[in-house]
């Protein structure tokens, strides 16, 4: 071996195919703390740790044989006094004097080994944390979905409750409670804008007689069918509610006397001419249009009074409260 290779800044040895060391340089001998005479002709296993021996058999040998070279392999050498020396190994399969030899060079990589260990454990930690993160995300997603379901249920329940509180159960129209609220809203709006609204009080004629004659089930049917007509005859912006018993109310926003009379008349007529599945009925209607200084009570009692007049005058007709003011119907 020439001196340059013997003292080159890397370990060098060459192996026969069966792993026997037949050439080794000084640099490697110094690294291993071993004498040349102690190692020549020995199997490479004597300078490898147990796992490196296995690794050598599992990977190094098949690779050098099949690919004729090994690049950047990491192994652990074992020095004479038992120290582990992590090394980087490159090898090439060369033919010299008609036989194949496997030339290997070794670089100790103590510092790099430490780095690699740190990197490896960081990689493992990262893998583990990714795994637990993924698990947590799955769990979180499950909880989120459950919450969403519960929220939906709650919303549906709320909606049902909301309907129950504002709806008349029998007719599906708004109930009196809802009516009181809407009447107040319309009044406030009127006081602010002076844009008047009208209020219709509708009462079924001789309803007590129907009930007594045909029974309450028929009475209920009449209430339902009338509600249907009221819904049909009112406009989208109008508010229709069952006031109680056989009494209904309509709030007509932005509607003056003339408009309210028109709507009331078309309701009255529809009821009279409707084809009923039950005994036919008629209605009497009282109308009031909001005036300055009106409260819920005043506007409603004017409509009530007008309704009373309609009844008195023989039913199946309508009366506007303004006509009361003129004293036309005062007794």
């Amino acid at each position: 071996m020439d001196e340059q290779l013997d003292f080159a800044p890397c370990g060098y040895l060459s192996l026969t195919d069966d792993g026997t060391i037949h050439c080794i340089n000084q640099t490697l001998l110094v690294l291993l703390g071993i004498k040349k005479s102690e190692i020549m002709g020995k199997h490479i296993n004597v300078i490898l740790t147990k796992s490196s021996q296995s690794f050598y058999q599992l990977y190094f040998f098949p690779m050098i044989k099949a690919q004729e070279k090994v690049d950047e392999m990491f192994l652990t050498l074992k020095s004479k006094n038992g120290d582990n020396i992590p090394v980087f190994l490159n090898a090439a399969r060369n033919k010299r004097n008609e036989t194949f030899v496997n030339d290997c060079i070794f670089f100790p990589m103590r510092r790099r080994y430490e780095y690699e260990q740190v990197i490896l454990s960081a990689k493992k930690a990262a893998e583990e944390s990714t795994l637990s993160k993924e698990k947590a995300i799955v769990e979180l997603e499950k909880v989120r979905k459950e919450l969403e379901c519960k929220q939906k249920e709650l919303l549906e329940l709320n909606e049902t409750l909301q309907k129950l509180t504002v709806t008349d159960e029998l007719t599906g129209l708004h109930n009196r409670r809802s009516y009181n609220k809407v009447l107040s809203q319309n009044l406030s709006l009127f006081h602010r804008t002076t844009n008047p609204f009208s209020l219709l009080m509708i009462d079924i004629d001789h309803f007590k007689l129907v009930n007594d004659t045909y029974g309450h089930l028929t009475g209920d049917k009449i209430l339902k069918e009338l509600s249907y007509i009221l819904k049909n005859e009112s406009r989208v912006c109008d508010f229709t509610a069952r006031y109680g018993g056989e009494e209904f109310v309509l709030i007509l926003p932005h509607t003056e006397k003339e408009g309210s009379i028109q709507i009331a008349e078309s309701i009255r007529e529809s009821v009279e001419t409707a084809i009923w599945t039950v005994p036919s009925i008629t209605v009497s209607i009282g109308i009031a249009t909001a005036i300055n200084g009106d409260t819920e009570t005043t506007v409603q009692s004017r409509a009530d009074e007008a309704l009373y007049i309609s009844k008195n005058k023989g039913r199946n007709q309508l009366t506007h409260a303004e006509e009361l003011k003129k004293g036309l119907f005062r007794n």
Binding site: D17, G19, H43, Q57, F61, P62, K65
Partner: peptide
């Protein structure tokens, strides 16, 4: 010798 006689 070794672990891969089919190669060695």
């Amino acid at each position: 010798t070794g672990h891969c006689p089919h190669m060695s």
